[in-house]
Simulated assay, not measured.
Amino acid sequence: MKVLIYSAKDFEVPFLEIANNEIHQIKYVPERLTDKTAVMALGFDVISIFSADDASSSVLEKLKDFGVKHIALRSTGYDNINLAKAKKLGVKVANAAGYSPNAIAEHAIALLLALNRKLMLSHKQVHEYNFSLSELVGFDLYQKTIGVIGMGSIGKVIVQIMKGFGCNLVAHDPYEEVTMIEKYGVEYMSLREVYQESDVIFLSAPLNSQTHHLIDMEAIAQMKNNTILINVARGAIVHTKDLIQALQTKMIMAYGADVYEFENGLFFYDHSKNKPEDEYLQVLLKLPNTLITPHQAFATKEALTNIAETTFYNINCWEQGKTPSNELTKELVR
């Protein structure tokens, strides 16, 4: 099959090449899929897209006209694609489900530790030969209450790791798993209770109509003023304007995120010579109690291997007339 890889990054191409094993005709392009770049898919059977690509209704219509029959996502999340429209058009879609929850969860913990133990400030001070500890005091995680919103594969790994720190674990999710309760002592709660009880809150829920701007001023007002909020889900789960106000007025202690509400077209690219005029991002980057990373949590060798292998597993299934286990359009009901 002829496959076009949108948003191809130099670091992932070697993994994709190995997974393809010279079976399919591959073309890599660095451009994002947008309404304007959809024409690049002309003549291709399959396209592969990443989380920053736009597979909205109008784009899907163009892809269908250009002959695209399959879309392989190189991500677990699929909030960037209109699945109902894809199904209506007869375009099959599959994702790279659960490629490495450990990679994402471990990065979430790294954000927490860096913020709590003031590692960014410490690094800066040491390089200036300032060895004072006055601004570097953190707190023990032992016996603190950790809240996890979204107990999918990533949330479960976060729970396992934080159990090792000796934390008390609370969670919110539509589904309560007995294993999490019995083995890790997780107490499932309402959102309000998680907000009120937690010293640290991890966001690991999918972005949908229920979770969009879940963390707004009303939610933040219910949190402790020493709460650290960590977001490794999607940027739009947090209302950025409200978050900035909360950080500036110290309604919460700190915010660490590997995502940003307005990251499309921004993250994954070098803008150092042409800095974007994004006022929210400029403020966030200047706040001393904020740590933003550029959607890099998935960037481990293991995760990239799994993403590539799953991507071509999906494509291979389609070529063989089979339905891959990760196909998202097969069970979609509207």
Rank of each mutant, 00 (worst) to 15 (best):
I5L: 11
K9H: 09
F11D: 15
I18E: 15
V29Q: 05
D45Y: 01
I49F: 09
A52T: 14
A55T: 07
S56H: 08
K62R: 11
L63K: 08
D65Y: 07
D65M: 13
G67E: 02
A72N: 03
D79N: 15
N82Y: 02
A84F: 14
L89Q: 06
V91A: 08
V91K: 08
R117C: 10
K118V: 08
M120Q: 15
H123R: 15
V126T: 09
L133T: 14
V137R: 14
Q143F: 13
I149H: 03
V157W: 06
I158N: 08
V159Q: 12
P174D: 01
T179G: 05
F202K: 03
H212M: 14
L214R: 00
I220Q: 02
Q222G: 06
L229A: 09
A233M: 01
A236M: 12
K241W: 04
A246W: 00
Q248A: 07
T249A: 03
D258P: 04
V259Y: 03
S272K: 15
E279G: 07
L281W: 00
V283G: 00
L285Q: 11
L291G: 10
T293D: 01
E302R: 12
L304I: 03
N306L: 09
N306D: 06
I307L: 15
T311W: 05
T311A: 07
I315A: 01
C317L: 05
G321C: 00
E327Y: 02
L332K: 02
R334L: 15
